[in-house]
Design a protein around this nucleic acid. Structure first.
Length: 598
RNA sequence: GCACUCGUAGUUCAACUGGAUAGAAUACCAGAUUUCGGCUCUGGGGGUUGAGGGUUCGAAUCCUUCCGAGUGCACCA
């Protein structure tokens, strides 16, 4: 029986015995004791003043005494105001460590849940094919990837999908500019990645387009009509029509340029260690959803206006009226998303579908989910929008057209470069081959950037400071990775010295810093669960950092190999082993690797 | 205008979902350590949680009014 359960049962019977009062298990909750107080578990007695007819401190005192007397694992307690802080016997922590190590031996790694038999589909990344990935995409990709791993750890079968926005006016802009100014350039001839090449022509288009607008304005047109009348935009719109008609030349160019982009994306995905189980393309899905509109009309969920357009009225949910099909019968974004949800459910019937999409689309998803619910879709309750905040730069907002974006490839190269520079100057890796060293730099650089973007609550808008993101100390991945490398070195030495870390069962007393590490270790499963429930990898990031810090404190306060008592040495090695595995496992949930040497 | 989100040390973020004296990191200052490790550890200053009002044993958290920032409200995707 786990510690918490024993305490709760103890408190229940305390209420029963001392106050003749039944309290159900759900109504009782323990919280971790704050650092500055003695104890590990805290019971708050304020809410029970009516029941006990005693002041909260008296109640705490009474229950504390009861627990100390009747529950063997309780060593002592203290009362501060109405807070009952419970201190557990050292042997409890020793056996807690033993059980953690045992679980690491088993098939179900410590902190991971057994298979729940439920399926989660998760959509993330979802790039446009007219420009390369940038910082905002990185937050999206890392969140999606980390959530995949966290949900898996929570016992779900996870299916990763990416919907590529490969059609539309924005791609036509790149295509048109390429046609006009490209002169047959290719990624090979220009020696740049395909996605960057296509992005270059997107910028090129915008440059010329702006110029035309200006010229028209100078000729006396107002801004709005200039934007509509500029020859370039008209050409791009014409091109989109050609594409939709299936014009072979246009389609061939589209295929060629998209091909370049995919090669570029592939390279970036490989580099950041992100992959997908299935790709959807909007060129395949953009016509979907019309049958659902028909169905909605029949069910009277939708209605038709005089101009033949189809709408849904969601004003009772404060969501207003929303168009779902144009008057000319062509689809809008919403139509397509309805169709895509349906298609996905047929492809891989899920219990939950998670959309990792920026919070500027909060409204869209509220409407989408509401519609599917009104249509009585069986999967409607399982839909979830993992809405994340924008990434700001110290210089302000990122705007792709103004060139103030941080390019993903550049950024990754930069952090890896920094990792190389700093690690080489430490001179600890001379025995590594150059490819091993290269692998290490990647682990560190990517770790730094992933951690930086994941440690903040996803829902919140965040500030990206390029300098801080490549820092190797403080609340960073390299700091945690460094701790892992150091623990690994200790374990290596222990192995060389033939220290078996399994004989410490009779240990009766441990150091406070050891207890603290074990306390943190025992919290891992709950953190994994919480991260899954809240869709928040940041929970794991904070946890792993706490663990690394606590271990470092232990490391300076307690000597491992200089210790005379063999049982203690064994215990400390065991503790180190559990820490190494938990750090590695926790970082793993964030898509970050833990090196054994650095 | 309407809707949604957010305002917490100088800065970047926490706060177990209503609990204790609001914590970390960073920068700065002062020390310690160097067990296989330099990126380790300890301490210090730094806060009227945007402002006011309310709810209660108890509020950064819930309600409300202001102030400020952002996003959305396309027959674009």
């Amino acid at each position: 029986m786990n510690i918490e359960k024993q305490l709760i049962t103890g408190i229940q019977s305390a209420f029963q015995q001392q106050y003749q009062h039944q309290i159900s298990e759900e109504d009782l909750s323990l919280q971790p004791t704050r650092k500055d107080f003695f104890g590990s578990h805290t019971f708050v007695t304020f809410p029970y003043a009516r029941v006990t007819r005693q002041s909260p401190p008296q109640t705490a005192e009474t229950i504390g005494n009861y627990l100390k007397e009747h529950i063997s694992i309780v060593k002592d307690f203290n009362v501060v105001k109405g807070f009952l802080n419970i201190e557990l016997a050292d042997s409890v922590w020793v056996s807690a460590l033993e059980s953690i190590l045992q679980q690491y031996q088993s098939e179900q790694p410590y902190g991971f849940q057994p298979d729940k038999g439920k399926k989660v589909m998760i959509e993330f990344s979802s790039p446009n094919t007219n420009k390369p990935l940038h910082l905002g995409h990185l937050r999206n990709n890392f969140l999606g990837d980390a959530m995949t791993k966290i949900l898996h750890a929570n016992g779900y079968a996870v299916h990763k999908v990416n919907i590529v926005n490969d059609r539309g006016i924005h791609i036509c802009k790149s295509m048109l500019a390429y046609q006009k100014f490209g002169q047959g350039e290719t990624p090979e001839s220009a020696k740049i990645k395909g996605d960057h090449l296509v992005g270059k022509y997107y910028v090129e288009f915008d440059k010329h387009y702006k110029k035309q607008i200006q010229e028209l304005q100078e000729a006396g047109q107002d801004e709005e009509s200039a934007k509509k009348e500029a020859p370039l935009i008209k050409e791009a719109q014409e091109m989109l029509k050609q594409w939709e008609k299936g014009d072979s030349e246009t389609v061939a160019l589209w295929k060629k340029m998209n091909g370049w982009v995919y090669e570029g994306f592939d390279a970036t995905y490989r580099k950041i260690g992100v992959s997908f189980d299935q790709f959807y393309y909007e060129s395949d899905t953009y016509l979907l959803g019309k049958d659902i509109v028909e169905e909605g009309l029949e069910k009277k969920v939708f209605y038709r206006k005089e101009d033949n357009s189809v709408w849904i009225d969601l004003s009772d949910e404060k969501l207003d009226e929303k168009l779902v099909l144009r008057g000319d019968g062509t689809s809008v974004y919403m139509t397509q998303d309805l169709g895509t949800a349906e298609l996905r459910y047929r492809d891989w019937p899920f219990n939950r579908l998670v959309y990792v999409v920026g919070n500027e689309q909060d409204y869209h998803f509220k409407v989408l989910f509401s519609i599917l619910k009104r249509l009585g879709r069986p999967y409607a309750d399982g839909l979830f929008h993992l809405s994340y905040g924008m990434v700001d730069l110290p210089s302000g907002k990122m705007k792709s057209r103004e060139g103030t974006v941080v390019d993903a490839d550049d950024l990754i190269d930069e952090v890896i470069h920094q990792a190389r520079k700093k690690t080489e100057s430490l001179g600890k890796i001379e025995e590594l081959t150059s490819s091993q060293a290269e692998e290490l730099f990647q682990m560190l650089g990517l770790g730094a950037i992933k951690y930086f973007l994941l440690k903040v609550d996803p829902k919140k808008r965040m500030m990206f400071n390029p300098e801080e993101s490549v820092q190797l100390q403080g609340d960073t991945a390299p700091f945690i990775q460094y701790t892992h490398a150091r623990v690994s070195a200790i374990l290596q030495k222990a192995k060389r010295d033939g220290i078996i870390h399994k004989v410490f069962g009779s240990l009766q007393e441990i150091h406070p810093s050891e207890q603290e590490v074990i306390e943190i270790l025992t919290a891992f499963p709950q953190k994994v669960q919480l991260a899954g429930m809240e869709y928040a990898p940041s929970v794991i990031a904070q946890y792993v950092f706490e663990l690394a810090k606590a271990y470092n404190r232990f490391y300076t306060e307690v000597s491992i190999f200089a210790e005379k008592d063999a049982e203690k040495v064994s215990f400390r090695v065991a503790l180190s082993s559990a820490v190494a595995q938990t750090i590695s496992s926790g970082l793993g949930l964030l898509g970050i690797q833990a090196p054994t040497q650095m």
